[in-house]
Amino acid sequence: MVNDEAQLYTLEGIAAAIIVVVTMTLVLGTTSIYTPGDTHITDMQLEQLGSDTLRLMDTANSTGARSDLEMIVATYDNRTYFEDLFRGYIRQASGGADSSLQFSASVLYRDDDFGNITSYPLIETQRFSGREPAIRVTRWVQLETRPAGSLPVPHNTLMDAREQVVLVEVLLWRG
């Protein structure tokens, strides 16, 4: 004979089964596990920070004056100033020193005689191994002539003396 006892237990069992099935669906449906490094949130913040910093460096103090970045590229010997300036602007918001931030800056130019695009390093705070998840920020810089200091071989002879536009490329990473 059928009796109607234990209805609540039956209901509980059904509800628990539904919860288990839904949870398993969610777990099995997650094909990959996201770690904070995969989500590129820090990359996005670093890119914004780097772009803004380069923009600040390429902004002249007054109309008609030359910007700091332009002066650094134009007088190649003065390039340690790049690190001071870059680090200074990067920590502007927090105030504290951001010592884990590493960067490697280089200048790309076009050789008009052969049409080649070549680069020479500007400054490197740490050797870039290629394994760090670095992001790249760039800035166009207009030069009136070839940089005044002696560029690394063979760029002194390769780089035209004409008025030109070069690209300053900075790799940024936490190391």
Binding site: L108, Y109, R110, D112, G115, I117, T138, W140, R162, E163, Q164, V165, V166, L167, E169
Partner: peptide, 17 residues
């Protein structure tokens, strides 16, 4: 000069960006 600068921007942007 203008066309050389134009080529600077166009070719570096194509190669690096």
């Amino acid at each position: 000069d203008r066309s050389r600068i134009n080529q600077d921007i166009e070719s570096i942007a194509l190669l690096r960006k």
